[in-house]
Design a protein around this nucleic acid. Structure first.
Lengths: 130, 130, 130, 130
DNA sequence: GTGGTCTAGACCACC
DNA sequence: GTGGTCTAGACCACG
């Protein structure tokens, strides 16, 4: 599973983890019943404190996305994929809307459109490199 | 001048104010030599603590966008408009890039494109209403 | 507001704090709009780490019982009292049920009744002392 | 012998097992010299990890309630019934006291009494069904 | 090995 | 001053 944590972002790291695990489940990379990475494992992979990961996992459990199996780890809940597919779109729509909302104040429609297109193209280029 | 402050955003309020004043100057709503709203006035308008506004103004002064006129207030610096036009694009590009970066992880190119188009259309619709 | 934290209890401290603040709001000691004790203040009063209090507050916010006022503190939400009255009974019923459930396995009805009565009398005696 | 394990309880599973075996011995369901269920057997019956059962048994042995018979299993010690009768009341009194202690903070005496009575009635109804 | 809880102490944004 | 986030490291319960 691929993560991309922006340490400098205003979005807290634990929220980024929450979102990206939701993406992973929504896209089927992690399916129902699968174990998600252990707190310690992921904290090493992301170079992040274990507590930060644990906080993200706690939030995922609260949302019904994963369930904790005592002594074994966390597993994608039965309803996990369905919940995640719904939440994925909500999260992204929310974030995109937040940025565009401000951008609309700042730029005429055409300029904004152009800027967005440039960045979309750039991202897709990068994504293909992986 | 129009502001749109998101109290719940992860972006600090004072940064939102900084950005939106830069947008106002970049778009010519506030031109060189114009007085920007007083700290008190703006804090009332935005329902925000005066210190938060003051901090934003301090940052704007640091960037050379406005200059303080003792006893009168703050006015747009001579180079303000030029600086702001440059910064506007940087800020927006930065924010758009940040969102798309994560979104690219989450959604296939086409779905993302569609989502962005929907939200662009929605924003422009709203913007026209004003 | 009175707290009674059992450090040795199997119930986590932060849950005890959550429950007891809910009791305080349910009983009207803290009414809508009132500020609850600051994280630091309460952590000193309870001899508990500030993070533990913060975690309790976070949970209260999630339940819609309090809202965070940036830089000022946490305030009882408009719906707080209503939510708390509902949750108070649920929490207590849940805990009482848990204990009696096991006790019923262990003791004949009459003995259990007697034991409960003794402890009820004892508690009420103590409560009156305060 | 009847068990009632609450997986979601804050009380560790192994402690629940310890307590409930003590109840069984105290009530004479398991008398001196009787073999208690094997670790495997009980772990299957309770849907619990064998290590958890083993740990409970270890604790029971520590308390002198059972003794290990090499190659045969564990049997109720000679002093088992006496010890258990004493501990049963202590455990229950302790748990009941813990719950009532907090409940006294939360509810006026009469409401609490009523709530306890409701739950006692409910438990006894259920117990009679078995 | 797993997650859950707690402590201690840091820095930041905001009032 | 406030809460929010993060790090570091400890102990516990469970498998």
């Amino acid at each position: 599973m691929i993560f991309d944590i922006q340490n400098s972002s205003a979005v807290p790291i634990y929220e980024q983890i929450v979102a990206q695990i939701i993406y992973g489940i929504a896209s089927g990379t992690l399916d129902r019943g699968a174990m998600i990475p252990s707190v310690r494992e992921l904290s090493v992979q992301l170079l992040v404190n274990p507590n930060t990961v644990a906080r993200a996992y706690q939030e995922l459990e609260r949302r019904g996305v994963v369930v904790s199996r005592r002594g074994r780890g966390m597993e994608v809940a039965d309803d996990g994929p369905a919940i995640c597919r719904k939440q994925r779109k909500e999260i992204l729509r929310e974030r995109i809307r937040g940025v565009l909302r401000e951008a609309t104040l700042a730029l005429p429609e055409d300029d904004l459109r152009k800027l967005v297109d440039e960045e979309l193209a750039r991202c897709n280029g990068k994504a293909r490199d992986k």
